[in-house]
Amino acid sequence: MSSDSETSVDAESEETPVVKKPEEKQVELPAFEKGISDKIIEKFGDKVYVTFVKEDRVGIGTSRENVHDVAEFIRDALNYDHVESVSGVDYPQDKEIEVVYHIGSYSDPSLARQILALSTRAQREENPIPGNDATKLPTLRDVFYSVEFHEREVFEMFGVYFEGHPDNRRLLLPEDWADLPPLRKDFTIKGR
């Protein structure tokens, strides 16, 4: 095709998307990153699971009961000191909303390249009443101070209420917003 990647007609992509399983073959994991994930596994056992280990990136998943303890361990024992971003990902088919904290370190030079993605999942309601339904997670504000505005953003964009957060107010949306939280998958923008 000469030019283009820009064409987005469904009729043109004739090949049906083959849903493949992620390949299971054993690849050589980077040693340093493996060491970080091993330390967390050693401490918490099967309360946590490793989602991925890539070069410079480690992914750790945990349940909502343990996320506070894991975050404290990451801060105190592993020298991570700030959160770069807090992003929610909506999975309607699992009835869950995943919240991912990307944690980095300024003070430890050996961790300067590293990002640790700590993910946890909250229950998802079909008809959300932000703040008053079961979509709740413990806040990490007292562990990492930098999550304060990020968690406020996740609250308004996904309706995930952070228990213990001192300031769960609206941040970016208009004051009179009464629709669904806009980044959920069932909120569709017009014409699409």
């Binding site: 283009d4 820009e6 992509s13 849903v19 493949k20 991925f52």
Partner: peptide, 18 residues
């Protein structure tokens, strides 16, 4: 480099680049 039209990613892969 030329890409295929409508390039697709892998199944549930995530990437964080900065």
């Amino acid at each position: 480099v030329k890409l295929k039209p409508n390039p697709k990613g892998k199944v549930f892969d995530s990437v964080y680049k900065r």
